[in-house]
């Protein structure tokens, strides 16, 4: 699988509480399979997938296609590995921040993960996609879509409700993140360094929602 015949190497990283389904999510994405067994990830792991990316030129016509090699880092959600996993944040270009739709606590921790990202990622406002996993378990659902959507909007990041078991929205979430990263690349190269800080994306993490803080504490 790994030869040098690709145009881009994009490193993405999945993070979130233990047991939210990061590993199964990535397994579904790369192999399109589902493993219902819970095997806790030891420290870190990664999976790879080769995808074809088509750029959309501004005038609507489909642009060039590129071969993208995705390196999808899977991190352990367990706290004892945290120092290890956060150290890997800085080498990733985009992040899948995951929580469990059937666990309120995992959703509450999203904010903590966000601040971890801010501290340890390659820049202050990296590209992030918020993913609520286990959407198929609707009877055990604890986090409402509206709630999660609001939080995502506050951070200014896309939100997806996925299910690794059924595969729903899994691809879409990753592709959206890939899209963001690809756009970021262009931005970084085209705009002088000073500008990139002050353009659109900045508010993502800087404006950590104050309202959320109030109600949570």
């Amino acid at each position: 699988m790994t030869d040098g015949d690709y145009d881009y190497l994009i490193k993405l990283l999945a993070l979130g509480d233990s047991g939210v389904g990061k590993t199964t999510f990535l397994y579904r994405y790369t192999d399109n399979k589902f493993n219902p067994k819970f095997i806790t990830t030891v420290g870190i792991d990664f999976r790879e997938k080769r995808v074809v990316y088509t750029t959309n030129s501004p005038n609507g016509t489909t642009g060039k296609t590129f071969k993208v090699h995705l390196q999808l880092w899977d991190t352990a959600g367990q706290e004892r590995f945290r120092s290890l996993t956060t150290a890997f944040f800085r080498d990733a270009m985009g992040f899948l921040l995951m929580f469990d739709l059937t666990s309120q606590q995992s959703f509450l921790n999203v904010r903590n993960w966000m601040s971890q990202l801010q501290a340890n990622a390659y820049c202050e406002n990296p590209d992030i996609v918020l993913v609520g996993n286990k959407a198929d378990l609707s009877d055990q659902r604890e986090v409402q879509e509206k709630q999660a959507k609001e939080l995502a909007d506050k951070y200014g990041i896309p939100y997806f409700e996925t299910s690794a078991a059924t595969g729903a929205e899994v691809d879409k979430a990753v592709v959206t993140l890939l899209d963001l990263v690809m756009k970021r690349m262009e931005q970084c190269v085209d705009k002088p360094a000073a500008d990139t800080h002050n353009t659109d994306g900045t508010s993502k993490l800087d404006a950590v929602p104050t309202a959320e803080k109030k109600c949570a504490c």
Binding site: Y122, M185, E186, A193
Partner: peptide, 13 residues
């Protein structure tokens, strides 16, 4: 872009 240099630059900042 292709070499990932953009990323290293951002990181270095």
């Amino acid at each position: 872009i292709k070499s990932g240099d953009w990323f290293l630059e951002q990181q270095a900042k």
